[in-house]
Amino acid sequence: MAYKKPVLVLVGALLLVAVGWWGWNRFRPYAFHGTVLQSTEPAPDFTLMSADGPVSLRDFRGKVVMLYFGYTFCPDVCPTTLFEVQRAMELLGDDADQVQFIMVSVDPARDTPERLKEYVQYFDPRFIGVTGSEDEIAEVATQYGIYYQKHEGTVATGYLVDHTASITVVDKKGYVKLIFPYGTPAEDMAADLKYLISH
């Protein structure tokens, strides 16, 4: 029976490792990929116009909201970001229904609600595009720390708009929780969103 002792020790050690691994994964704090913001105030509410009527942030309490400021003329940076969000939504599967992506136009003069709708829904039919008056957009952008500035383009492009290209994530309780900087991969977004959906 002497051979049983080392076997028992081995089994015990393996068990300890397994339980430790499970516990570490279960209880360690989640490390977000995005930049974490601990805001003490709820995210500023706003009401802007979509092709299907007015849209307010508070309409989506209980969902995780992704706010993105961009414009439809933008051929490179905006579609790159929207494509990554589209991929993140795919990665989330059924959980994606708990996420609302909203694109706010920083080019209200050229982006009509209809135009925005067609633009964002090309990427995902669940996406919403909103716009408003120059003043309304400026107010919302300021509240969210979004910089945007028109500058002269060419004859063909007309003016172009520099804009903060990060995504602001509002949690289910309505607090700004995360910033996804430009270039955040879909996998990272999906992991963070999944955590926010289940917590």
Partner: peptide, 21 residues
């Protein structure tokens, strides 16, 4: 295309993304 131009996206001094010829 109506017009074809050579452009580049870049990070502005303000940390925003811009595009210019």
């Amino acid at each position: 295309c109506g017009t074809v131009e050579l452009h580049e996206s870049f990070k502005t001094a303000e940390g925003a993304m811009g595009m210019r010829p």
